[in-house]
């Protein structure tokens, strides 16, 4: 079996005073062994909620998986008890977060924070775990690894802390690493270093990575395939080459147009007009319609399906048999009227 992770029709919502409010609306995608899959989309589209759903880390929030399944190595994670799930986290399935400054415990030494995971999952003595921790720090390119073991997080720079987070995450040799915006909080040169560390450890350990980002530059740099999300839905998914060479969805085109290119003045940078609709105020038809330059009548009435076209999925009326649908709708409305 080649599929490492298969998310099927995942729906996640948050409990509000007036009932559940879904923020992830039935998304499906997969990650193969040793593959790097990107999830891109603007802030608030549900990327983090998706990753927390896979890790089943929503219980400190009012969030809840409403429907769907998360198959990991043939096991449905959504059906596991919390006790069983704990054996996966940090072990087979690990995660790093956006904020390296706050993701490490400020009052514990780096060494302790690394050893903890190792001793929890790998059945090593304290001494063995210590040695393993040092080798992990070295593998993510931390100089003076022995000294860093005795440091507190505030003694390290943001880039170094993110390397420590990666070292912790890969210390039990996971088959899948979920990286939720691992470089967003870092400055550009450090971003590039962290990405190359991730690529290196991915090659060494044949790990799959789910790379969550709002930066198409990151996707182009490291991913094999990419899933584009908008308002809790997948709107397009393809291989990275295909997506950049022949983007289909107007949203994806907009995202690509807004990536700064060398030689382009900053003032000519394109950005998609308008803002992401809030979950409480969703348009009825295509969720992107209010911001789309190619919007048509039908877009406002009916949401398009995610249609598969040769390894390249897209959710947009421009690529669907809209005539039939329009006829269908018109018939329906004339019959009623």
């Amino acid at each position: 079996m080649n599929q490492l992770l298969q998310v099927k029709n995942l729906k996640t919502g948050f409990r509000k005073e007036n009932g559940m409010q879904n923020v992830v609306h039935g998304i499906s995608f997969h990650v193969n062994k040793g593959e790097i899959v990107g999830i891109v989309g603007e802030s608030g589209c549900g990327k983090s909620v998706t990753s927390l759903s896979i890790m089943r880390l929503l219980h400190d929030t009012p969030g809840e998986i409403v429907d769907g399944s998360v198959m990991f190595k043939g096991e449905d994670l959504t059906a596991l008890s919390e006790r069983q799930m704990k054996k996966y986290r940090g072990n087979e399935l690990s995660m790093i977060f956006q904020e390296p400054m706050t993701s490490l415990n400020p009052v514990l030494k780096i060494g302790r924070q690394l050893r903890e995971t190792i001793q929890l999952h790998l059945n090593m003595s304290k001494k063995e775990a210590h040695q393993h921790a040092i080798s992990m720090l070295k593998s993510v390119g931390i100089p003076r690894a022995e000294d860093v073991m005795n440091d507190y997080p505030h003694q390290l720079s943001g880039g170094m802390r993110q390397r420590v987070m990666i070292a912790i995450a890969i210390s039990c040799n996971p088959s899948l690493l979920i990286a939720d915006e691992p470089t967003t909080a870092l400055d550009v040169t450090i971003q590039a270093q962290i990405l190359s560390v991730l690529k290196d450890v991915q090659k060494q350990n044949e790990m799959g990575i789910l790379m969550i980002t709002h930066d198409l530059g990151v996707v182009a740099e490291v991913c094999d395939r990419v899933v584009v999300m908008y308002a809790g839905r997948i709107v397009e998914s393809a291989t990275v080459e295909e997506l950049f060479a022949a983007p289909k969805h107007p949203y994806t085109k907009g995202l690509i147009a807004s990536v700064p290119k060398i030689g382009q003045g900053i003032n000519r940078l394109y950005s998609i007009p308008g803002t992401v609709p809030s979950p409480s105020n969703m348009p009825t038809g295509c969720k992107f319609a209010p911001r789309c330059s190619q919007v048509m009548e039908i877009c406002k009435i009916k949401e398009p399906e995610l249609i598969q076209m040769k390894e390249h999925d897209c959710r947009c009326w421009l690529y669907q048999e809209k005539e039939q649908e329009v006829e269908h709708i018109e018939k329906g409305s004339s019959a009623r009227g």
Partner: peptide, 19 residues
């Protein structure tokens, strides 16, 4: 404190409630 990011990190490591 339980709302802090590093607590989420702890959970992502597979730690239980007491730890």
């Amino acid at each position: 404190t339980m709302k802090q990011d590093y607590i989420r990190t702890g959970r992502a490591k597979g730690l239980g409630g007491n730890a």
